[in-house]
Design a protein around this nucleic acid. Structure first.
Lengths: 142, 142
DNA sequence: TTTAATGCAAACATTTTGCACCCTG
DNA sequence: CAGGGTGCAAAATGTTTGCATTAAA
């Protein structure tokens, strides 16, 4: 699984598999539907009685993004959210502007089109970010 | 044109068409390919000898976003960029991760697909945000 | 002349960094 | 036990806000 990939990366770079890194990794990969931000990870760990500094959380997140195991996403707020990059089709997010609910969707066809667009502009495309903002069924009733 | 729409909106809300608002509006709408951030607008106005405070720029930008004349976009940095919402097909951005160049693209088909996806999830979709990150032709050579 | 808008500086929120101490390998 | 990692607090960055003053309408 992905933990092995993380450890392999750390070894290859002569970096260490420390307690904070283990906890942060576990927190992100065990709650795949959450898209937490740094503060949320901090809060969840604290609630479980695990003290890890916010600084370490930011440092570990950027490490995980750097080695390709985690993606940084933006939901139009003034901070970033993070999600594990598990082996699955790339996807976008439906974000409710009222309650903040986030629902994932994937659509092979969109990626095909985006890749083609990149090619036409001679861009070497690396990653895509697709967000759809609107109002979920629940919030429309109100 | 769009200036009229802005003035109409201000009138309808009993807001005033002030010097800073006029300058900021003009700056955004006269440089449509720039996607400036707040600080960039500030810098450009200053260079032209026009002093407008950053606070007013932020206030006016949020006003323009609120009335639908300007869109806020995120290029994966820690600040927002802005672009005028002229009457044209919605579009996405190709962003070069090396030099920061931004190229727009539009593709009717993507919007059709995204609208359909929203409908399937009973989302009332409001707006889309599509960014493709990669490396432009120039930066690939290096 | 009334009411909203501005500029300034201080407050905020998020993220990064310097440094003394700690711990993994 | 050497070198990277941590926590803390301070700094940096981007954005918002309170307030006295200015200026549209």
């Amino acid at each position: 699984m992905e933990l092995k990939a993380f450890q392999d990366y750390l070894n290859s770079q002569r970096l260490k598999f420390t307690r904070p890194r283990r906890l942060i990794f576990k927190e992100i990969f065990s709650s795949k539907k959450i898209h937490p931000n740094a503060y949320e990870i901090h809060r969840r760990l604290k609630r479980k009685g695990q003290k890890v500094s916010l600084a370490s959380i930011y440092r570990t997140l950027s490490l995980l993004v750097r080695c390709g195991l985690v993606s940084e996403i933006d939901f139009g707020e003034n901070h970033s959210h993070y999600e594990p990059d598990v082996v699955k089709v790339a996807h976008g997010h439906l974000v409710c502007l009222s309650c903040g609910e986030v629902k994932e969707f994937s659509h092979e066809r969109i990626l095909t089109i985006l890749s083609k667009i990149g090619k036409e502009s001679h861009f070497m495309t690396d990653k895509f970010s697709i967000q759809v903002f609107g109002y979920c069924a629940n919030c429309q009733k109100k």
